[in-house]
């Protein structure tokens, strides 16, 4: 029979855990709203940019001399993976899922004889990959999403990635991030940014394309020059978007995880209270029996 005092302490401790998880849930819910809002307000820019890239890329279809950021350098030997994760834990399967995906991808690429480097955004993603592929990790960028995703950070990252590309440190760059589907679902999504895969965006931009690509644009200056200018910025935008989506996903995942935890804590408190009451009742019955049998003995 568990001791009454121990049970009481146990119940109190679960109660305070529940308070923490439910507070975290509410914080995550508030942050999620904000994150969703900023993801939505970033959409117009990204969409227009995609339309422009699609329009320009079309004019380079099958033509030599397209810029390298679009067409690639013709090699497929060295891969760079940008792993977008969170700095903090307690968000359910958010980091575990993306970590698993990244590890599988690295194993797959290595098996095919390619070299792989990883750039981690967020501490937790690094922790996931470090054990098996510690040698592949180039660097970890932390505190990116402290105040929500900032375009400046994305821009700096894009600059860094481009510098590495120019120096020939990799041939193909893929961003892996959690795509925000709804508050409770995220989807691990790989997005190839260098060379930029136009096919991926064709679906989203299709409607716009049908309308607008038919109208022939005049280009000023030439297509090549615009594209030269556009592609680096497109890279920043893609990274920015991955960061925004990932941040919203993180908050959603944390909200769901904390909701679960709060509910589990509630169940646990109920069970413990039941045991506690039973134990108390048993103690009282015991005392009564003792008194009655004592009286009878007289």
């Amino acid at each position: 029979m568990p001791n009454l005092k121990d049970l009481k302490i146990r119940i109190d401790s679960v109660k305070s855990t529940q308070k923490i998880t439910s507070a975290m849930k509410m914080v995550a819910a508030a942050k999620l709203r904000k994150a969703q809002l900023s993801a939505e307000s970033a959409r117009p820019y990204a969409e227009r940019m995609e339309t422009m890239v699609a329009a320009l890329a079309k004019s380079f279809d099958g033509v030599d001399g397209a810029p390298e950021l679009l067409a690639g350098n013709g090699k497929d030997e060295k891969h760079l993976i940008v792993l977008v994760s969170s700095d903090r834990g307690l968000c359910g399967g958010f980091n575990a899922n993306i970590g698993r995906f990244a590890r599988n991808k690295i194993t797959e690429l290595r098996a095919a004889g390619k070299s792989v480097k990883v750039l981690c955004l967020g501490r937790k993603g690094r922790d996931q990959v470090r054990r098996d592929f510690g040698d592949a990790i180039l660097d970890t960028v932390e505190d990116l999403t402290k105040n929500g995703a900032q375009y400046n950070d994305a821009n700096n990252l894009a600059l860094r990635i481009r510098t590495m590309y120019e120096e020939g440190e990799f041939d193909v760059c893929t961003v892996i991030y959690n795509k925000f589907i709804s508050a409770i679902t995220q989807e691990v999504t790989p997005l190839q940014v260098i060379p930029f895969a136009v096919a991926q965006i064709e679906d989203t931009a299709k409607e716009a394309q049908d309308d607008e690509l038919k109208a022939l644009y005049e280009y000023e200056p030439s297509e090549e020059e615009i594209l030269e200018d556009l592609l680096p910025r497109n890279l920043s935008v893609q990274i920015f978007r991955a960061m925004l989506e990932s941040f919203a996903s993180e908050q959603g995942a944390r909200m769901a995880a904390m909701d679960n935890a709060t509910r589990n804590a509630g169940d646990m408190i109920n069970n413990l209270t039941l045991t506690y009451n039973r134990a108390r009742q048993a103690a009282i019955t015991n005392e009564l029996i003792e008194i009655i049998s004592g009286a009878e003995a007289l």
Binding site: P44, R48, Y151, E220
Partner: peptide
């Protein structure tokens, strides 16, 4: 006329004329 920054849509309004500093 629409003015869009990476973070959000800054301005979207009907105007009579707008002069933009183009690359050329």
């Amino acid at each position: 006329f629409e003015l869009v920054s990476p973070a959000k849509l800054l301005l979207s309004e009907e105007v009579e004329m707008v002069v933009v500093p183009g690359g050329e």
